[in-house]
């Protein structure tokens, strides 16, 4: 019960926070909708945990809670993959930038 209340409170807090950031133009509408959708579903699942069982049964997983964990892990791994790719790209760009500065500021004692 405590955990449910905590989840709902946190979900609402996250939604409020995102709306505030959207108003301050710190995040785009896309992110606002995405985060709201995510946290709304968290709140719904917290309120009615049995809803996930229906979905779980449909896709062939025993319990709704298990399904949530599986989905979460898949999303997490994919996010890490995306971040790694991006970091690799930024590393390359950083090298290019450092190289450009080095070439422009080359010096020699006369």
């Amino acid at each position: 019960m405590i955990f449910q209340i905590f989840l709902i409170a946190f979900g609402l807090f996250a939604i409020l926070k995102t709306i505030r950031q959207y108003r301050a133009k710190k995040v785009s509408l896309y992110w606002l909708l995405l985060w709201c959708l995510l946290w709304l579903s968290v709140v719904i699942v917290a309120l009615m945990p049995q809803t996930t069982d229906v979905l779980a049964e449909y896709v062939g997983v025993e319990k709704g809670a298990d399904l949530l964990v599986y989905v979460a892990i898949v999303i997490l791994f994919y996010s890490i993959y995306r971040i790694l790719i991006r970091s690799e790209k930024q590393n390359k760009e950083l090298t290019e930038l450092v190289r450009k500065i080095a070439k422009l500021e080359a010096k020699r004692k006369d």
């Binding site: 080095a102 080359a106 010096k107 020699r108």
Partner: peptide
């Protein structure tokens, strides 16, 4: 008395070689 090029952030030996070669 050598030409000196400086990486403002450490990028590794391969990167340094490429910088020097391009210069």
């Amino acid at each position: 008395g050598a030409y000196l090029l400086q990486h403002v952030i450490n990028r590794g030996q391969g990167a340094a070689l490429q910088t020097g070669t391009e210069f």
